[in-house]
Simulated assay, not measured.
Amino acid sequence: MLTDIKRIGILRALNLGDLLCAVPAFRALKAAYPGAEISLIGLPWSRAFQSRYRQYIDEMIEFPGYPGLPERDCDIDSIPVFINDMRSRRFDLLLQMQGKGTIVNPLVHAMKARYTAGFRPDKTEGLFLEYPDRLHEIHRHLSLLKHLDIPVQSSALEFPLNAADYAAFGEINDGLTEHQYICVHPGSKGAWRQWPTPYFAAIADYLAEKGYKIVITGVPSETGIAEEVLRYMRYPAVNLAGKTTLGSMAVLLQKARGLVSNCTGVSHLAAAIHTPSLVISMDGEAFRWSPLNTQLHQVVDWTKHQEYDYVIKQCESLLERTEYVLL
């Protein structure tokens, strides 16, 4: 393990699910270097993430984007300023946890940390590990720490809740009874990851027939797809799409009987909150993103099982084996 590490930078300018899957690595890194100041180089929304995980991440530095990366529009003129800022921070260790490194490795090397480590698309060399394509996202980042001889702890996700989260939930809760409702989340960052809305409506009706109240959820940009599901449904449902904060959504999930969703940020949130979930994986990468707790979560790889009846059977199995959650 590298020694005399006082300042650590982590490049991971990605979305909610990506950051949640990196929490076990953040936790292990802080345990290995408890006195180090750890900075997350991320997207603007990550400030809220950093403030929630202060026990692991001390600071959030806004990433201005970079040519070839799709996560945000790139301001070319800001890149030299950003690089100079990173150099001035004199990181002892800079971790590239953005991806394979084809695009960003020249950037992280330009930041001139004392040690630079991360992934690379080809063979392992020095502090850089060949990108492990077939590993789960959580284990991928833990494998990088192992490569650096950093002790790895648990692979479990976590999502700390606070009083503000419960207060925000109270503002949107209109008569929901704990464990008597199921959240249905039909949206996803990419359209190719979205199970068709008629199927979401059908499974919502199936659960409503079983006596559960249905709560449709989504971020503000997903209100349209939520309304589409509602139009297909035969049973009434509560529409909270666009009305939740990240914290109130987490409390909503914590008190729910379960979640039905695409493989997206909210499915990782349910895994961190330990709420049973039925996750439909549309992109053939279930091996990479599925919740690790297969007792509490059921994933359907739609590229292999494109039958609605199969999904219903998996839903029935999940409900049966997670009854203990209510005890």
Rank of each mutant, 00 (worst) to 15 (best):
L230I: 15
A117I: 12
H109E: 13
G190F: 08
D309I: 01
R47A: 12
A31S: 01
S248E: 07
N173I: 13
L161T: 14
A272I: 10
K210A: 14
I76K: 10
K243N: 14
S51G: 03
M97S: 00
E227G: 15
A286P: 01
P80D: 07
T217K: 13
L246N: 05
D165M: 11
S51I: 02
Y310P: 10
I273A: 02
Y181F: 08
T177A: 11
L278R: 07
Y56D: 09
V229F: 12
L278A: 05
S267A: 10
G35Q: 00
E59F: 04
L259R: 01
A31Y: 00
V279P: 00
L94T: 04
N15A: 14
F49K: 06
E171K: 13
D77F: 02
I216W: 03
L129M: 10
I214T: 04
L107C: 11
T245E: 05
L69N: 08
M86T: 08
L161R: 15
R140L: 12
I38M: 04
A163L: 11
L269V: 12
P220T: 07
R52G: 05
I41C: 03
G175P: 14
G187S: 02
A110K: 04
Q153N: 15
T264Y: 10
A204V: 06
F63I: 11
R89G: 08
I225T: 15
K313E: 15
T275E: 03
I273E: 01
A208F: 07
P121H: 09
I216E: 09
V238C: 13
P44G: 14
L127A: 12
L326I: 10
N105E: 02
C263P: 07
K30A: 04
V152F: 00
R114D: 05
A271M: 01
T116C: 09
I280M: 10
A117P: 07
P34Y: 13
G35S: 00
F128Y: 14
P44V: 13
T303K: 15
H305E: 09
W45Q: 07
G65I: 11
